[in-house]
Simulated scan of single mutants.
Amino acid sequence: MTGNAYPIDVWGLLAALLMVALAAGVSGLMRLGIGRSLLWSACRALLQLCAMGLVMGFVIHAGDPWLVVALLAVMLVAGVQITLSRAKGVPRGLAGPVLLSLAVTLLLMLTVVTGLIVRPTPWYAPQLVVPLAGMLLGNTVSALAVGLSRFFESMQERRDEIGTLLALGASPWEAAKPSVVSSIRLGLTPTTASLASAGIVTIPGMMAGQVIAGGDPLGAAKYQFVILAAIAALTLLADGLIMLCVYRTCFDAEGRLRPARTTARTAAKATA
């Protein structure tokens, strides 16, 4: 123990891996078919987190704003890749809109949090900006993947309805709007649930981590609320922006609904 903090040694990490290994064993006994992927994911997470910890330590001690920018850029590119790999039934060629949505909304939220709420010195303080960006991106990536999957699934399910709306004089936006709304709502559901249960049902990760590390519980609660508020705003803005970017790919230049088989080629051309 150092001060009021409780550091984790190598044996603690091995014990944590053992818990996952036991869960993987139970999966094998029940023939769920997820034991190997569960164990592999846990090992991968440990390596990735330790690597990020080392990188963050270097960036924090260096205090160079350009290193902070470079690390954020790498995180954004990784966020795009993860978003597209998680989304199901999504056409190719959406890397550009996803990157634009993540970059614009992340920079906006970071500016608000660092410039108006926390006001660190210096303004690019790595120990604040990098973890904050990671938490915001982690939640937004999941929401975008869910939202994109739901949007294209809904557009496919509503093909006849959309065709009727267009025939009656509706614009492409008016025809696609129900799918846009349902996808944004679905993407926001986990965030809304987290806001509603925070402090009563759950003690969120950032607050729990600060308290375990010896921080003031009330101060940790304030930080956690700022993070949850920023995540909610970022998720809504990012989902809305990506929907505005991609809904047009479902229609041709004359506002007619494209055949499903051409959507992937159209999306690739639209973002080229």
Rank of each mutant, 00 (worst) to 15 (best):
V69H: 03
V69Y: 06
V69D: 06
A70E: 11
A70Y: 08
A70M: 08
L71I: 00
L71N: 02
L71C: 11
L72G: 04
V74H: 06
M75G: 09
M75K: 06
M75N: 08
V77R: 10
A78Y: 09
G79N: 07
V80C: 11
Q81H: 10
I82Y: 10
I82F: 10
I82K: 09
T83P: 02
S85A: 10
R86N: 14
A87K: 01
K88I: 14
G89Y: 06
G89N: 04
G89V: 02
G89K: 03
V90D: 05
V90N: 06
L94Q: 10
G96C: 07
P97A: 01
V98R: 02
V98C: 15
L99G: 12
L99R: 01
L99M: 11
L100I: 10
L100S: 09
L100T: 11
S101V: 07
S101Q: 04
L102G: 02
L102Q: 05
A103C: 13
A103V: 02
A103G: 10
V104F: 15
V104D: 04
V104S: 11
T105M: 11
L106V: 08
L107W: 14
L108F: 14
L108K: 07
L108Y: 15
T111I: 06
T111V: 12
T111Q: 14
V113F: 13
T114K: 01
T114R: 06
L116F: 13
I117D: 07
V118W: 14
P120R: 04
T121H: 14
W123C: 05
Y124R: 02
Y124D: 02
Y124C: 01
Y124T: 00
Y124A: 03
A125I: 00
A125D: 12
P126Q: 04
P126R: 03
P126N: 08
Q127N: 07
V130M: 11
V130S: 00
P131E: 05
L132W: 01
M135F: 13
M135V: 08
L136F: 05
L137S: 06
L137Y: 01
G138C: 07
G138Q: 05
N139K: 04
T140K: 03
V141M: 12
V141L: 12
A143E: 15
L144W: 11
L144T: 01
L144N: 07
L144R: 01
G147Q: 01
G147E: 03
G147W: 13
L148R: 03
L148T: 04
L148M: 08
L148F: 03
L148H: 00
S149W: 13
R150V: 13
R150D: 10
F151G: 05
F152R: 01
E153P: 04
S154G: 12
R158N: 12
R158H: 14
R159H: 09
D160F: 15
D160N: 14
D160G: 11
E161F: 13
E161N: 09
E161T: 13
G163H: 12
T164Q: 15
T164M: 15
T164D: 05
T164E: 15
L165Y: 14
L165M: 10
L166H: 12
A167H: 15
